[in-house]
Simulated scan of single mutants.
Amino acid sequence: MRKSERLLQLLVLLRGRRRASTANELANRLQVSERTIYRDIQSLLLSGVDIVGEAGVGYCLQPGSGIPPLMFNEKELEALVLGIRLVKGWADDELCAAASTAQDKIRAVLPPQTQQAHEHKLTKYLVPDYNRQAHVKFSEVIRSSIDSTTILEIEYSDEKNNASTRTIKPLGLMFWGAKWTLVGWCQLRDDYRVFRLDRIADAKLTEKSFNTSPSCSFEHYVQQFGPGISTGFWD
């Protein structure tokens, strides 16, 4: 890896951490020696990057400090644009609109030749949005309830078409490639339950909030699937 690429990755790591990172942690992530990390930190400081910390304690970017805009390599850009297309094909209207503006922002900073090359490559990917609305019913209400930790009441029909009213603590959404499911703590069953969005007939926010706990959270539910599955954005 060239030094310029390593410095850029080091900046990305520092910007993505809320706490100070030790040289050992950074060295393990970048697969270099601690001595290399110390030299790279010094290089960034000399170039004007506002890093605070010291050896043996850790390093972090000064809050509010700016760093040069990041450029994506070919595969990173391809992954980003494909991800945006997946969102536009399988998410609700609000997220679809956000994906479109994000795509416009990415396109705006790309050189014309890069734009043309990637537009051509991405014609080989197709993400149909057939019946999208049926698969994302009440998604905006559900996301709002998750973000605000607000109790949700839903009218739900199971695979045998048995209808019931459920009061749940909405914890997270999972996408299985064809279906969205809501993971929640069902007060009726006093346990985790998973609800397909296309089987929800109605969803209403209540005025009651809830708290998660180590034994009642989206992370705890996901861990039950086994090692290797993570909800962390920065993992």
Rank of each mutant, 00 (worst) to 15 (best):
R189W: 00
C186L: 10
D158T: 15
V194R: 09
S145V: 07
E159F: 09
W185R: 08
E153Q: 06
Y125F: 10
V194Q: 05
L182V: 06
L197K: 07
P128L: 12
R199H: 07
N131Y: 10
T165E: 03
A163T: 13
Q187R: 11
F138N: 04
E140K: 13
V141M: 02
I146N: 10
Y192S: 15
W176L: 14
T165P: 03
K179H: 12
K160Q: 05
K160D: 05
A203D: 03
F195R: 08
T150M: 15
F138W: 13
S144V: 08
V194G: 01
Y125M: 15
T149L: 09
D190W: 09
L188T: 05
L171Y: 00
T149G: 08
Q133T: 05
K160S: 05
K137W: 00
T165Q: 05
R132A: 03
Q133I: 02
E153T: 10
D147S: 11
I154E: 04
R196L: 07
D158A: 10
R143G: 08
R166M: 08
A203N: 02
Y192R: 15
F138Y: 12
A203W: 00
M174P: 08
D147V: 05
Y156H: 05
S139E: 12
K169G: 06
K204A: 14
L182C: 08
V127H: 10
E155G: 06
L197N: 07
Q133V: 04
K137D: 00
L197E: 03
R193G: 13
S145M: 11
L171Q: 06
K179T: 11
I146F: 03
I151W: 02
W180R: 11
N161S: 14
V141W: 02
N162P: 01
V136T: 07
W180E: 06
S157Y: 01
T165I: 13
H135N: 10
T165H: 01
E140P: 07
R193W: 03
I151S: 08
T149S: 14
K160F: 08
L171N: 05
K160H: 08
S145R: 14
D202L: 06
N162R: 04
D129S: 06
Y192V: 14
I154M: 02
G184E: 04
Y125I: 13
S139W: 00
R196I: 00
E153C: 03
Y156D: 04
E159S: 12
F138H: 11
T167G: 01
V136F: 07
M174D: 11
I154Y: 00
D147T: 15
A134I: 01
E140L: 09
Y130A: 13
D202I: 01
D198A: 01
S164L: 05
S164H: 04
I154H: 02
T167R: 04
R166T: 05
A178P: 12
H135M: 12
S139L: 08
A178L: 10
V136Y: 10
S164C: 14
W176D: 15
R166C: 12
R199V: 11
S164A: 15
F175E: 12
V183I: 11
S148P: 04
A178H: 10
I146H: 04
I151P: 04
